[in-house]
Write a protein that binds this DNA or RNA. Structure first.
Lengths: 250, 250
DNA sequence: CATTTGAAATGGTTTAACCATTACAACAAA
DNA sequence: TTTGTTGTAATGGTTAAACCATTTCAAATG
């Protein structure tokens, strides 16, 4: 058994024998390339059927695929149809969710990844932060302060604002790859926060103190310090979760 | 206009009014729960149609969705049908790839991200590399050596083996999140290599020298040195490309 | 024993119809 | 005039029955 040639991972098998796949790639390319813009409505199924010269069933199989990729979204009723979706991290988050749920990937791996990404993001953000950005971070910090009353319903809120704080840093860092990737990580890790972080006042206070120090370091444009502070912060909570996780499963 | 309640990103709208979605979730649950095992073959469309009491068209829309999620794969012909796929990182990779393309991520952002990720990966790999791993890296290095003859058709080959080297490091690092992410970064950055890296012998020789030093550092388990070497290596080529890019567009 | 051939199973596609939902315009009532 | 009602047409969702193309495998053939 010999492979015909060294498979290049950039190429996929050209199994373009199904008509609906051809329709999918044509519409997908139009969206990615920009000739179909976000929010734009595609013609109805009966008209698209004509355009692509396929049956309505085949066309609908193409639409199902595009819908699954979150490139379009379908609305029913008059003036309904396929609407082009904005850029969306959801499909990545969903497939990562499957991997985590079925333990093809360990939470530890995701946590390790997060620690590194957060460190890089924080350092970049510290270098680039403008006054406006620091103001935004400070206001998130203030928001957390108001939630530090130990009420159980506010515990969850604090975690959410903490997430916002981290995503805000990613935006400040000014790199959309980091921003998207971190957003995907948070989509998935939130569930574990909820399950494995102790719901105590100490946790939320610790978050406030950590973030306060981070904002101070950013104000001083001390990117090295910002990075180590963020990494300590992230690692502290990852360790907490791991401890509770092993408790639960032992 | 007031939202009825604070939308929690963990919950999705229960739009279960489409029959095929019900079929999708039933089959998906069966797969994820384990009652349908990897490699197992589902009944044919005509029989499934009966089971779920839907038309063949509706059933096929469900199959398209499951196929897109990479939970099943379809084979045609007698004894064909839907086969349950092993859960792997492919759907994450594909959707991340789509996300990067849709955002029209440019070389600068991608390169910046790559530099950070490669640094982290290299450091982790240096800590964990076994003899077998070092052997694999060395053999890739040897392969590059044989391609250092300045022939233009080998230039591309060297770049490919360089990519393999980096992905090999990610595997050695033992974190599948890093591994899939880096793999996608390479898929996307390759076209810039091809367009903007000077096709000179000096480039391939530089690659060889860089990787040689990296393998040596890994042998010494010097993770700090490995990290800086990798980052220098990556940055050098990113700067080269950026220089050529601005030349082209000025 | 090897090869050819043909039948059956199965996915891929088409056609034509009907149902359910939605937006909107026309109309009616206040 | 404003507001509420109603009908209608556009549109997605679903069904049914048929035919084609591909693949497998067993039977026939050499």
């Amino acid at each position: 058994m010999v492979k015909p040639f060294q498979m290049n991972p950039m190429f996929k098998k050209a199994k373009q024998n199904r008509a609906f796949e051809d329709v999918v790639s044509q519409i997908q390319e139009a969206i990615l390339e920009g000739s179909l813009k976000t929010g734009e409505r595609l013609p109805g199924e009966r008209q698209l059927r004509e355009t692509f010269q396929v049956s309505r069933g085949t066309l609908r199989e193409a639409l199902r695929t595009l819908e699954q990729k979150k490139l379009i979204q379908i609305r029913t009723g008059m003036r309904g149809g396929a609407i082009v979706c904005p850029v969306n991290t959801q499909p990545v988050s969903e497939s990562l969710d499957l991997l985590l749920r079925y333990q093809k990937i360990d939470l530890k791996e995701l946590a390790e990844f997060r620690e590194e990404v957060e460190g890089a993001v924080a350092s970049m953000a510290a270098k680039k932060a403008k006054k406006k950005d620091i103001k935004e971070l400070t206001s998130l910090l203030e928001l957390i302060k108001t939630l530090l009353d130990g009420k159980p319903e506010n515990w969850r809120e604090v975690i959410k604002v903490d997430n916002q704080f981290h995503l805000c840093l990613a935006r400040i860092a000014g790199n959309r790859v980091f921003e998207s990737v971190l957003s995907i990580v948070y989509d998935n890790i939130f569930r574990y926060f909820d399950r494995f972080l102790p719901k105590e006042e100490g946790v939320t206070e610790r978050i406030y103190k950590d973030l306060y120090g981070i904002v101070e370091a950013i104000k001083r444009k001390d990117d090295q310090k910002t990075m180590t502070l963020i990494q300590d912060h992230v690692k502290r909570f990852d360790r907490m979760m791991e401890a509770n996780q092993s408790k639960v499963f032992s």
